[in-house]
Design a protein around this nucleic acid. Structure first.
Lengths: 127, 127
DNA sequence: TTTGTCTTACGAAATAATTCGTAGGAAGGA
DNA sequence: TCCTTCCTACGAATTATTTCGTAAGACAAA
């Protein structure tokens, strides 16, 4: 039940991303997706997922012969952790600095900008 | 002169941060700052900075006995790289998703929100 | 000059992360 | 049953990162 502050490595994050988008999956299924972008052996993927299980990043259902893994941390939580880490180490603790950097370099389209504006208004009203 | 896409490790990033805020410094000076937060030997810091020099993350002036190091990548560039990496790996390529996550969890104060709004307007006008 | 202090360079140990080979068991078809 | 295929577990090799011990030179004070 200990779960706070686990930092996934880059490889682990790739796997989590697949689990978040596909939902519960076997090692084989995950591996097939990974293979599209990089090449690694099947047992490499397996091992990685076993380690993630030990770390409680994922949980697994051992009912059937092929274990079924699912993410044990939410994408939102992990996003939050990572954004916070980034703000702390690279933006002197200022969320808005990060926001401006993000907007500056990756021109969101008009629709996106609008969403953000709405979001800002929403936050104002909450006060 | 090859410099694109160097990824600093966590330790290297700590050093870069110090260089960015203090400007050109000797190993001794950097080490003294690092010591405030963690404990590591002097030669550890030295080695790290030598490696960073090889990677061209920093450059050094060997004129005096104590070499003087300075950052060889701008903070803004590195912030950009890292934000981009984050957007790509964790936010499906959407900058605004990251922005909202950042705003959601780290309530920027009213003044900050205002800055962001101004920034958004600015971007609109640019179009 | 001799000694103590500070510096760099170098190599290698310690630790962390990734990769893979091999063994053994389950399941299905011939 | 016997063979082939697929699965897990495990241990160890490989690679990356961090840490530090030691040597050698510069320099200044005694």
């Amino acid at each position: 039940m200990n779960n706070s502050k686990v930092k996934p490595t880059a490889s682990e994050l790739e796997i989590l991303n697949i689990l978040w988008s596909k939902g519960p999956s076997t090692v084989r299924e995950i591996h097939e997706v990974l293979e599209l972008n990089k090449d690694a052996g099947y047992t490499t993927t397996l091992k990685l997922m076993q380690i993630m299980n030990e770390k409680s990043l994922v949980k697994r259902d051992e009912t059937s012969k092929s274990h079924v893994y699912s993410a044990n941390v939410s994408k939102e939580l992990m996003q939050g952790q990572m954004v916070k880490g980034m703000i702390d180490t690279m933006f002197n603790g200022s969320a808005s600095q990060l926001v401006m950097q993000a907007l500056g370099n990756h021109k969101a389209d008009a629709k996106e900008l609008d969403e953000i504006r709405k979001y800002l208004d929403l936050m104002d009203k909450k006060k």
